[in-house]
Each structure stands twice: as C-alpha cells, then as structure tokens.
Design a protein around this nucleic acid. Structure first.
Length: 920
RNA sequence: GCCCGAAUGGCGGAAUUGGUAGACGCGCUGGACUCAAAAUCCAGUGCCCCUUAAAGGCGUGCCGGUUCGAGCCCGGCUUUGGGCACCA
C-alpha cells in the first residue's frame, strides 16, 4: 500500500467530525491552554496559500500542548461585519448578509481541507445577533461608566452622580471632556438636558464634537489606524479632517495602563515598541502665559517638554482650530486670519501630508507675556501646531526646535540661542546637551539638570505644573454605514438614552438601498427605525467593535445570560498564545486590550490583559514570473537573451511555468493575443524571469491551498508552510520546493509499509535506533516551544533518513515517531496510529519522554596530566587516545592561562586538533 | 527626519548563543534501475587556483576593534524591510 493521502485525509477528517475529537469543555483535572488565531474577515477572494500560515502554526502548537496533557481551547470564527461586503452590496444590490454567508461557507470548506483541530461548536460570527448582543451590551456598560483617575479604574455613572450631588465637579478626578466647574447646589438645579450634557463629558462611551477623518469616497468617518498617508486603508479614497458629532470611546483614559501593561506581556519587542509609540507618552510641563489682544487679558496654557528653553521663546503659535484663535485675533488682523483659516480648512489631509515642511501661518495681532522674562512675544497661528494634542498652543523656541526654526526663518522672527556655543545660523540645535546661557537662574547648568530645575521653578512659582500627555486619542466609534452593529441608543427629546438591556440585541433592520442619501447613514432609510416611539441612532459601530472581545465569547459561546460566565472565564482565564499579523498592532490589539481592561474594572473578567503571548506570523509573498516581449512584435525572448532586445516585461500566470521554464503551448492557449506568439529560446527552453511580490490576482501569482491539497495533500501543505522558514519572517512562496517534504512523508510511510507488506515488528530497538529517536524528541520539544518549526522538520528528515538506513521497523521506535509527527501531519499520523492497533485517536496519546542518555555522543572523561600532575578532566571522543589528548592540550596556545592545580576544563576537540579549552 | 528589525552558497534557510560556517530542503551535475519516461535510489555541489587529485588560499554586506578564537560582542558605515511622521 502506497501513501494515499487522498483517502487518508478524507477518512480522518470525517472521523474527527463524527467522533467530536476536538470538542473541549472546562475540565478542572487538567491545566488549560488557550491558543487563538486572529479570526479572518471572509473576503470574496477566498484563501490563498499565505492565509493559513498562522493557522497551521497555532494548530501545531495546540496539538503539541494536547499531547503534553493540556486541555486546549482552540476556536475559530469570522470577523464578518465590514466595508467590503457593503461596498459590494452598493455595486450589485446583493445583501451583505448573503454574500457574507457565502464567503464564510467558502472559507470553511477551504479550512476544513487543511485538517485543523478547531472546536467548531464554538464558532462565532460578529454579524450574528446572538453575538453582537454582547458587543452592544459592552457598549452600554461603557455608556454607563466614567473613569475615576483617583482609583484608576472605570466606575458606574451613578457613583459619579452621587459625588456631584455631594460636592459638585470638584469632588472627582475624572478623565473627561471640557466641563465648567459647578457646585453641588448648581448640579441639583441643572435641567435634565444640562445634566445629561455634563454626564456625556464623563462617559467612557460618549458622544461629542470632534475632528474626524471623513472619507467622502466611503461616506463614513474612519479611525486613525484605518487611514494611511491620507487615504483610507480600505479602498484608498482620500480622507479629510472634518468636525462632526460622533460616538467615541475614552481609550485615552486607559493610556497609562495600556502602556504599563506592555511590560508584562510576552510579545515581540518591535510590536510593543509600535504600541508604545502609538500611545506616545510624553512628560512635560503646562505653563500659563498671559495673553493680550489689545483690550482683554487672558491666561493661556501651553504644553512643553522643554521648559528649560523658556528663555529662548520668541513667539507663540496656536493651532488653526484652537478656541484661542477667535479670542486673540485683533480687528486689524481679522481679514488676514480668516483668509488663512479658510485656506487651511479646504486642504485635505493628504495635501497636508504632501506639503509637510512647507511653512504657512499668520499673525493674530495679540501678544503673550513670557512669565519668566516678562518679555512680550507675538502670537501666531499655524497648521504645524495640532489642535488635538496638548492644549493646541505652544511656546516657540526657534533656536532649539527645528519646526519653530523653520517658522521663524520664514516669517523673520528672532532666534535666541540659550545653549553655550551652539550654532543656529543654519539649523536649530535640538539635542538635549550642553550648558545653558542667556537663561537667568538656569545659566551654567547642564541641559538635563536645567529641565528638572525649570520644572521645579515653574511649579514653585505657581506658573504651571508638571503634566504627562499621551498621543493616544479616543477612538471614534461611529460609522455612517449599514453593515455593522446598531447602537443601542435612542433619542428621547434629544437626549441620548440607552435601550433597555432586556431588549438586546437591537437587530439590524432590513433595508433595500445601501447607499447613503444626503449625508445620512443608510439606517436613516430603514422603516420604523424607532424605539418606544423615539428615533434610534442611525450610525453603526466600526469593525473593531466585534473583534474586541471575541476571545472572551469563545470561552462560553452559547451563553445567552452573559458575554461569558464566571465559571468559564475563571477556567480559561486568558489567551495563552495568540497568533496573527502585525497589521493589527495599533488597531485591534489596542482596542481589545482597552475593552478587556474595562470589563476587568467592572469585574466581568479575571485578567486585565487578554493576550499573554503573541506571535506575529510573517506574510507569504507571491513569486511572480515574467516573459519578455520584444517591443512592437508578438515575439518573446528568454530571460538570458533579453538584454539583446528592447523588451516589455509581462506577468505570466505561474501555473504555466515550472522551474521557471515556460510551457509554450499552455502559454499560447492562455490568452487569444498569445495564440501566434513566437519565442527566442535558450538551449531549447524559454526561461522566465521572476520577482517576489505581493500575492494577488493581478500578478497571476496566487497559489490556492485547495490545489496543493489536491496534488500533495494537507499534511504536505502543513509541513511545507512550516518548513519554508521562521514563522515571524515574511517569505516568498515557491511551490517547487514542496516535493522535498512530500518525499519525506512517503519515506516516512515506507518505514511502516513496503508495497503491501506491513513491516512493523515487536523486536527490541538497538541503541543506534533509540539514539535517532531521542535526538528527535529532544529537538522537537525545544524547537516547538520556541516556534522553530522549520528546524524541527529538518530533524524529522534526518531521523527518518537514519532509521531508513538502519532498516528500523521496530514498534518501540515507530510508535513514538507517529506521535511526534502528529502535530505537523495529523492525517498520516492517525492512519498509522490505527495501523499500529490503536482504536483511539492519536490526539489522545502522550508526547514521548526524552531520554538524554541516548543523545550523548560517544564520549568519556579523561584526566589529563601535565608536567606529571593531573590538571584537567576532559570530555573527549572515546577513540581519541589519552596520549593524543595530552599532546594536543600541551600544544594548545591557551594552556598557560589555565594551568592550575585543580583546574577542571572542558576541551573542545575536532578530529586532529583542539579547538578550545574552557573553564568549567 | 525619528524608532525598531534584517543582511550567510544559484535559492529558502541552519549554526548548541563566542568554538569544525553553510544542517535540512530546493535547484543543478553525474550515475543506477527502465525499451523509454515517471517514480525511486546512490554520489557530487560555497568560491578561487588546478587537466584531475592532493595541498593551499579566500569566504557570513563594508571598514575598524575586543578575543587564543567573531556569522554571533563593541565602534563607524552601506543596503534593505517595517512602523511613525509636524505630538512641542
């Protein structure tokens, strides 16, 4: 019987389903282990060979942990709400639900062929009302909470109201929007509407006017991580800044905890660094400047990280969107300022980025007083200052900040250096080093020292205070789209009011027209989109809403009383291993952590960080092939000869190419225009050029996992994807190498069968055979734990080669070997496990014990004497004589350093010479 | 511009973390089996010098350093991938 992967794989995939092999439940008798994949968005294109990379890696780890005796939770589901399905609906009129369902079915059938050990009974879909009930529920909880900075956690809004009734706004230290202070008496006197407006400034899910990324092409707002270089990530449409009233999540309240929590996570340094940059902690000082517009004087607060440079301030700058602009624009400057504001407003985000470093601005007409020098400096307005960060106003120190420097140069403002000996004639001196000068009491201090001294001074004199700012903004949570979770909010007399929890899920209404009309979201078209006779919110939640807590839902997916039961959460706790791409670094992975921390604050979950260990799989790129057409002809020239002609490079379908050799007939048949193609060959063959590019249809380099399963089998696919290289690394797919692992499986099979002959015997294994096995066990255990699957597979190939050479067909060796291969190639393992006489699944087996004795090389310990005294013990190959060792040691140049009475050293020997002597 | 990471044969990649560089696989060359092909198996394969072999020399992006010894550590570059981008 030859290795017939087709029937084997079909047989065992059916067997696993009918025996519910991978169902799991809470089991107090075994330790839990939770392995999670980032669930896919089911796109219409289906899976290509790059998608399952992470899934295979996590599946191997799950199966390995199971063999190690863990109760492994390994679920899968679909991130099914999203823009592409809706865009498709607008184009075709097909309901997103039906295309999504179809896409999911396609994904499922592709995934099923690869032999994953998912517990499919736990599947979740974010667009399923039974699932998004809990997304809406979490939103309502956030709506009903505020962030208490004193306790550093979220608390119910009722407790805030109680505090207001007792002591007014001064009674709490909260993360909140702008609120005018009020007393307890004032609070009690406020109308319902006033109270509601104030509470809205405190809620964790709140509605507020904010500058948003508006994408006209998609007709919706986008989060910062959904915009790249001024274009929408989905669709690539231009994005502009616009002020709009939007639902937002107060993620910024958690900035400190999100930052500090990173230290406890087993994630890659690069990913943690990305999150740190995104959170962007910066410790500085808020300083109050008196500003005067000719008639009135105000206190204006600015934020700076370099108070030490305050003696070098020569002007101030406001963001164009700052509230100060209106107050500080003098009548004489009004026309000029208005013109500038109009100019800034009509620029799109993309233009702003393209023109970065071009300096623009306008003088407001007002002056500020430097609180330390008493000097008057002009107040300017410029787009290089951002409204959303700090206070939207800065003090400008052109000598020591490159942006201020460029501005000062452009508008001829003075540049005053305050560090000894620095040259600011060409550029600013931004480095934090040198001795202070021109700076009053700071003179002579080192810069680092001066920063602290200046902070202390400002605080002592009551001119300002230390302040930590974060770059992380609140997440904009509204989307003017249809295919997302509806907000469980209705407007009762204009007041945003939560839908009763008992009425969740608030189901997405049927609509027939998916286009937005007149800037209104599609839900505005829905009939009877009301609740208790009042209008419901018409925007929907963004993509990250449904993916923020799905890992919790998997723990208890059918619970209709809660997101996750206390018992299930207490057992499964958190995700031990999370595998997915880096592209979610500043989106999903921040939002999930925030969401989880919020639920933790309220006591719904036991862990405050959701993902303990995270592995980022690299991308699998495509390997494209090219043919070279001679310009103006239908003649194609082979790679080696193309430089003799003027040619155009054309992508050719990789299915027409084998080993970079073009199948000429298939090429002619590929497209009508190539029917009469002629070729200039080298050595009778047409050699194609190649390049590594993104795997995509337009480059004709997509490899479908189904076709690999058809031709080689799922086990070969799994092995080959892992053999390609380290999981974290991006690497090109190249199908031609797949024969190597396929050969390995056939060879493995032949250890058990020769033709129709079953070879396995119960004879005792020889030491050489045991050594081959145990070398492999040791290697596999160490490598799997560190995700070096590619070297594990190499070790397999070596072991199988050795056992083949030894003619080994002993059960004592082959049975553990089957267990060892089962995480990688589960189908062949099951088949052989059954053939070995087992009537249970190999998944129930135990990982074999590693016995170190079998891996020790042929060595023994020699005492080595020198000048008649024993000085060394060395581990050496047995076949090296003592005399030879002593001779070699004596001759070794390192000897004098280590000579001592009791020195014990290890001598590293290669045939014929000593390589090293090290102290033991 | 700033912050991470990477660089090893024709290719994908190994190297016990400072100790025989190039494991394993692909590709290529030669051979066996075969009428032939496929499949399978065996041998060779870093580069240079050389008819061949032996022997030798050179080799982990570049320049320098530490060390008995460096792909690995230190200093300075180059190229390349990724992230951020007026965050005061």
């Amino acid at each position: 019987m030859e290795y017939d992967f087709r029937s084997i794989e079909r047989k065992w995939q059916e067997w696993w389903i009918s025996h519910k092999t991978y169902r799991v439940g809470e089991d107090a008798s075994r330790p839990k282990y939770y392995v999670l994949d980032m669930f896919p968005y089911p796109s219409g294109a289906g899976l290509h060979v790059g998608h399952p990379l992470g899934y295979i890696a996590s599946d191997i780890f799950s199966r390995y942990k199971r063999l190690k005796g863990f109760n492994v939770l390994h679920p899968m589901g679909y991130d099914a709400f999203g823009l592409p399905a809706e865009q498709y609906a607008i184009q075709t009129g097909r309901h997103p639900e039906s295309t999504t369902t179809e896409n999911i079915a396609r994904y499922r059938s592709q995934l099923d062929r690869i032999g994953f050990s998912y517990d499919w009974s736990r599947e979740v879909r974010t667009c399923d009302p039974a699932y998004y009930k809990w997304t809406q529920w979490a939103f309502l909880k956030m709506f009903g909470c505020w962030y208490d900075r004193a306790a550093d956690k979220a608390r119910p809004i009722e407790e805030l109201v109680a505090a207001f009734e007792k002591g007014g706004s001064a009674a709490v230290d909260a993360s909140c929007g702008e609120v005018n202070p009020f007393t307890a008496e004032q609070w009690k006197a406020f109308s319902e509407k006033e109270k509601s407006d104030i509470l809205m400034q405190y809620r964790i899910a709140y509605q507020g006017e904010t500058s948003v990324n508006w994408c006209e092409g998609l007709g919706t707002v986008l989060a910062n991580d959904e915009v790249k270089e001024g274009l929408s990530v989905r669709g690539g449409f231009p994005v502009e800044q616009k002020k709009m009233k939007q639902w937002q999540l107060r993620v910024s309240a958690y900035a400190g905890r999100l930052l500090e929590g990173l230290d406890r996570l087993d994630w890659s340094d690069s990913l943690k660094e990305m999150q740190r940059n995104w959170i962007g902690k910066s410790e500085g000082t808020e300083v109050v400047f008196k500003v005067n517009n000719g008639s009135e004087t105000y206190d204006m607060t600015i934020f700076t990280t370099r108070v030490d440079t305050i003696f070098g301030v020569t002007f101030m700058v406001l963001a164009p969107e700052s509230d100060w602009v209106e107050k500080l624009t003098t009548p004489a400057q009004k026309a000029e300022v208005d013109e500038y504001l109009a100019y800034v407003k009509k620029k799109t985000e993309r233009e702003r980025i393209a023109e970065t470093r071009t300096v623009t601005g306008v003088f407001s007409g007002s002056y500020a007083v430097n609180p330390l020098t008493g000097e008057n400096v002009p107040v300017w307005i410029s787009e290089y200052v951002l409204a959303g960060y700090g206070t939207g106003a800065i003090m400008a120190v052109p000598a020591h900040d490159s942006r201020d420097y460029a501005f000062a140069r452009k508008f001829n403002l003075p540049i005053v250096p305050i560090i000894e000996g620095c040259d600011v004639s060409e550029q600013s001196f931004d480095a934090k080093e040198g001795k202070m000068c021109n700076s009053g009491f700071l003179n002579g201090m080192d810069v680092k020292q001066a920063i602290e001294a200046a902070k202390d001074y400002v605080e002592e004199k009551g001119l300002g205070r230390r302040k930590t700012n974060f770059r992380l903004r609140d997440a904009i949570f509204s989307r003017q789209r249809y295919w997302g979770e509806p907000f469980p909010i209705y407007y009762k007399d204009g007041i945003a009011t939560p839908v009763d929890e008992a009425d969740l899920p608030l189901q997405l209404p049927e609509i027939s027209d998916f286009k937005s009309k007149g800037g209104e979201p599609p839900l505005a078209n829905a009939k009877d989109w009301t609740y208790k006779g009042y209008p419901l919110e018409t925007s929907t939640m963004p993509g990250f809403a449904g993916s923020s807590a799905y890992y919790l839902r998997y723990m208890d997916p059918h619970n209709d009383q809660g997101l996750v039961s206390r018992e299930a959460n207490a057992y499964w706790q958190d995700v031990d291993l999370y595998i997915g791409g880096t592209e979610h670094a500043t989106g999903h992975l921040i939002y999930s952590r925030f969401w989880n921390k919020f639920l933790f604050d309220l006591g719904y979950v036991v862990k405050d960080e959701p993902f303990r260990k995270l592995v980022n799989q690299g991308m699998i790129q495509g390997r494209s092939n090219f043919v070279y057409r001679i310009v103006g002809t239908n003649k194609f020239v082979s790679l080696g000869l193309k430089d003799q002609y003027e040619t155009t490079e054309i992508h050719v379908d990789i299915n027409l190419v084998y080993n970079d050799r073009l199948d000429l007939e298939a090429f002619k048949a590929w497209r009508p225009e190539f029917q009469d193609a002629e070729f200039v060959l080298e050595n009778g063959e047409y050699i194609c050029g190649w390049a590594v590019e993104k795997m995509s249809k337009s480059m004709y380099n997509v490899v479908n996992p189904d076709s690999i399963c058809d031709n080689y089998g799922a086990d070969t696919l799994r092995l080959y994807e892992m053999f390609l290289g380290p999981i974290e690394q991006s690497k090109p797919w190249d199908t031609k190498g797949i024969d190597g692992v396929n050969r390995f499986l056939k060879k493995f099979w032949r250890l058990f069968y020769n033709k129709d002959q079953w070879l396995v015997t119960d004879e005792k294994a020889t030491p050489a055979e045991l050594k081959a096995l145990h070398k492999l066990i040791g290697k596999e255990e160490a490598d799997i734990e560190s995700f070096s699957y590619n070297t594990t597979i190499s070790a397999f190939m070596i072991a199988v080669g050795e056992l083949t050479d030894l003619g080994c067909n002993k059960r004592e060796i082959l049975e553990p070997l089957v267990v060892l291969i089962s995480p990688f190639a589960p189908h062949i393992a099951e088949e052989l496990w059954e053939a070995l006489g087992h009537n249970t699944t190999v998944a129930d087996a135990r990982f074999p014990e590693y016995v170190a004795a079998y891996t020790v090389e042929n060595t023994c310990t020699y005492p080595v004497s020198f000048n008649g005294k024993t000085r060394f013990t060395v581990d050496l190959p047995k076949d090296m004589s003592r005399e030879a060792v002593e001779e070699a040691v004596r001759a070794h140049e390192m000897l004098p350093k280590y000579v001592g009475e009791q020195t014990i050293v290890k001598v590293i020997v290669v045939p014929g010479r000593i390589v090293n002597i090290v102290l033991k």
